[in-house]
Computed example of a mutant assay.
Amino acid sequence: MSNDISLLRQAFVSQRQFYDDNNFPRGFSRCGNFTLLEASILEQHGVVLKALFDKTLAPQNAIQEQFVDVVCSAKEPTNPIEKTWLKYLKLTTCKSKFHTLFGRSKISSQLPINQEDYSESDTV
Protein backbone atom coordinates (compact mmCIF):
# COMPACT_ATOMS: atom_id res chain seq x y z
CA MET A 1 0.00 0.00 0.00
CA SER A 2 2.74 2.50 0.89
CA ASN A 3 4.48 1.65 -2.39
CA ASP A 4 1.25 2.47 -4.25
CA ILE A 5 0.99 5.83 -2.47
CA SER A 6 4.57 6.73 -3.29
CA LEU A 7 3.97 5.93 -6.97
CA LEU A 8 0.86 8.10 -6.90
CA ARG A 9 2.71 10.93 -5.21
CA GLN A 10 5.48 10.80 -7.85
CA ALA A 11 2.85 11.29 -10.55
CA PHE A 12 1.78 14.64 -9.03
CA VAL A 13 5.12 16.17 -8.01
CA SER A 14 5.07 19.93 -7.48
CA GLN A 15 7.84 22.37 -6.61
CA ARG A 16 5.49 24.57 -4.54
CA GLN A 17 3.20 23.88 -1.64
CA PHE A 18 -0.52 24.44 -2.08
CA TYR A 19 -2.38 26.79 0.25
CA ASP A 20 -6.01 27.91 0.27
CA ASP A 21 -6.04 30.82 2.69
CA ASN A 22 -9.56 31.85 1.65
CA ASN A 23 -11.18 28.59 2.72
CA PHE A 24 -8.61 27.20 5.17
CA PRO A 25 -6.69 30.14 6.70
CA ARG A 26 -5.24 27.96 9.46
CA GLY A 27 -4.03 25.33 7.00
CA PHE A 28 -5.37 21.97 5.93
CA SER A 29 -4.00 20.02 8.89
CA ARG A 30 -5.43 22.42 11.49
CA CYS A 31 -8.90 22.98 10.04
CA GLY A 32 -10.34 19.69 11.31
CA ASN A 33 -11.73 18.58 7.95
CA PHE A 34 -8.79 16.56 6.69
CA THR A 35 -6.70 13.71 8.07
CA LEU A 36 -2.95 14.18 8.26
CA LEU A 37 -2.53 12.14 5.06
CA GLU A 38 -5.13 14.22 3.23
CA ALA A 39 -3.57 17.48 4.44
CA SER A 40 -0.18 16.26 3.27
CA ILE A 41 -1.58 15.32 -0.15
CA LEU A 42 -3.18 18.74 -0.58
CA GLU A 43 -0.13 20.67 0.58
CA GLN A 44 2.39 18.72 -1.50
CA HIS A 45 0.36 18.05 -4.66
CA GLY A 46 -2.48 20.58 -4.63
CA VAL A 47 -0.81 22.94 -7.10
CA VAL A 48 -0.73 20.19 -9.75
CA LEU A 49 -4.17 18.86 -8.80
CA LYS A 50 -5.72 22.33 -9.11
CA ALA A 51 -4.02 22.97 -12.44
CA LEU A 52 -5.29 19.64 -13.79
CA PHE A 53 -8.77 20.37 -12.47
CA ASP A 54 -8.78 23.89 -13.94
CA LYS A 55 -7.39 22.50 -17.22
CA THR A 56 -4.43 24.89 -17.14
CA LEU A 57 -2.15 21.83 -17.17
CA ALA A 58 -2.54 18.88 -19.51
CA PRO A 59 -2.19 15.41 -17.98
CA GLN A 60 1.41 14.20 -18.25
CA ASN A 61 0.86 10.50 -17.50
CA ALA A 62 -1.81 7.82 -17.16
CA ILE A 63 -2.33 8.50 -13.44
CA GLN A 64 -2.99 12.19 -14.11
CA GLU A 65 -5.36 11.26 -16.96
CA GLN A 66 -7.28 9.01 -14.58
CA PHE A 67 -7.42 11.86 -12.04
CA VAL A 68 -8.91 14.21 -14.66
CA ASP A 69 -11.45 11.55 -15.64
CA VAL A 70 -12.50 11.12 -12.01
CA VAL A 71 -12.85 14.80 -11.11
CA CYS A 72 -14.42 15.91 -14.39
CA SER A 73 -16.57 12.91 -15.29
CA ALA A 74 -17.91 11.97 -11.84
CA LYS A 75 -16.27 8.55 -11.98
CA GLU A 76 -15.60 6.77 -8.70
CA PRO A 77 -12.27 7.68 -7.08
CA THR A 78 -9.87 4.76 -6.75
CA ASN A 79 -6.94 6.20 -4.80
CA PRO A 80 -6.31 8.56 -1.86
CA ILE A 81 -5.30 11.49 -4.06
CA GLU A 82 -8.54 11.41 -6.04
CA LYS A 83 -10.60 10.96 -2.87
CA THR A 84 -8.81 13.83 -1.15
CA TRP A 85 -9.29 16.23 -4.07
CA LEU A 86 -13.00 15.38 -4.31
CA LYS A 87 -13.34 15.99 -0.58
CA TYR A 88 -11.54 19.33 -1.01
CA LEU A 89 -13.90 20.29 -3.84
CA LYS A 90 -16.94 19.31 -1.81
CA LEU A 91 -15.80 21.49 1.08
CA THR A 92 -14.91 24.49 -1.08
CA THR A 93 -17.53 24.51 -3.81
CA CYS A 94 -20.74 23.20 -2.25
CA LYS A 95 -22.16 26.02 -0.21
CA SER A 96 -24.64 24.94 2.43
CA LYS A 97 -27.67 27.01 3.31
CA PHE A 98 -26.92 29.82 5.68
CA HIS A 99 -29.07 29.89 8.80
CA THR A 100 -29.32 32.84 11.11
CA LEU A 101 -30.98 33.53 14.42
CA PHE A 102 -32.14 36.92 13.23
CA GLY A 103 -34.93 37.62 10.84
CA ARG A 104 -38.66 37.45 10.58
CA SER A 105 -40.64 34.48 11.63
CA LYS A 106 -43.81 33.66 9.74
CA ILE A 107 -45.08 31.83 12.80
CA SER A 108 -45.15 34.89 15.05
CA SER A 109 -46.98 36.98 12.47
CA GLN A 110 -49.62 34.28 12.01
CA LEU A 111 -50.47 33.79 15.69
CA PRO A 112 -53.95 34.97 16.58
CA ILE A 113 -54.03 37.79 19.07
CA ASN A 114 -56.23 37.04 22.03
CA GLN A 115 -57.89 40.25 23.17
CA GLU A 116 -58.27 38.92 26.71
CA ASP A 117 -54.50 38.96 27.11
CA TYR A 118 -54.42 42.74 26.90
CA SER A 119 -56.14 45.11 29.22
CA GLU A 120 -56.64 48.82 28.82
CA SER A 121 -54.04 49.50 31.48
CA ASP A 122 -51.41 47.91 29.22
CA THR A 123 -52.02 50.47 26.50
CA VAL A 124 -50.91 53.81 27.89
Score class of each variant (00 low, 15 high):
Asn3Asp: 04
Asn3Glu: 07
Asp4Lys: 08
Asp4Ser: 06
Ile5Pro: 03
Ser6His: 11
Arg9His: 13
Phe12Ser: 01
Phe12Tyr: 07
Val13Glu: 14
Val13Tyr: 04
Val13Phe: 03
Val13Cys: 09
Ser14Lys: 01
Phe18Ile: 10
Tyr19Ala: 13
Asp20Val: 01
Asp21Pro: 04
Asn23Cys: 12
Pro25Phe: 04
Arg26Ala: 11
Gly27Phe: 00
Phe28His: 08
Ser29Asn: 07
Arg30His: 06
Arg30Lys: 07
Phe34Lys: 06
Glu38Asn: 03
Ala39Glu: 01
Glu43Gln: 14
Gln44Gly: 02
His45Tyr: 03
Gly46Ser: 15
Gly46Leu: 15
Gly46Glu: 09
Val47Pro: 00
Val47His: 03
Val48Ile: 15
Leu49Lys: 05
Phe53Ala: 10
Asp54Val: 08
Leu57Ala: 08
Asn61Trp: 00
Asn61Thr: 11
Ala62Glu: 13
Ala62Asn: 10
Ala62Ile: 09
Ile63Arg: 00
Glu65Gln: 14
Phe67Gly: 03
Val68Glu: 00
Cys72Lys: 10
Cys72Met: 10
Ala74Gly: 01
Lys75Pro: 00
Pro77Thr: 09
Thr78Val: 14
Asn79Thr: 06
Pro80Cys: 15
Pro80Leu: 15
Ile81Cys: 06
Glu82Gly: 08
Thr84His: 01
Thr84Phe: 01
Thr84Gly: 00
Leu86Met: 15
Lys87Ile: 05
Lys90Pro: 00
Thr92Gly: 02
Ser96Trp: 04
Lys97Thr: 06
Lys97Glu: 09
Phe98Ile: 14
Gly103Gln: 02
Gly103Tyr: 05
Arg104Thr: 09
Lys106Ser: 13
Ile107Cys: 09
Ser108Arg: 15
Ser109Gly: 09
Gln110Met: 14
Leu111Ile: 14
Pro112Phe: 10
Ile113Asp: 14
Gln115His: 03
Gln115Leu: 09
Glu116Cys: 02
Glu116Pro: 02
Asp117Cys: 12
Tyr118Asp: 12
Ser119Asp: 13
Ser119Cys: 10
Glu120Cys: 14
Ser121Asp: 12
Asp122Val: 14
Asp122Leu: 09
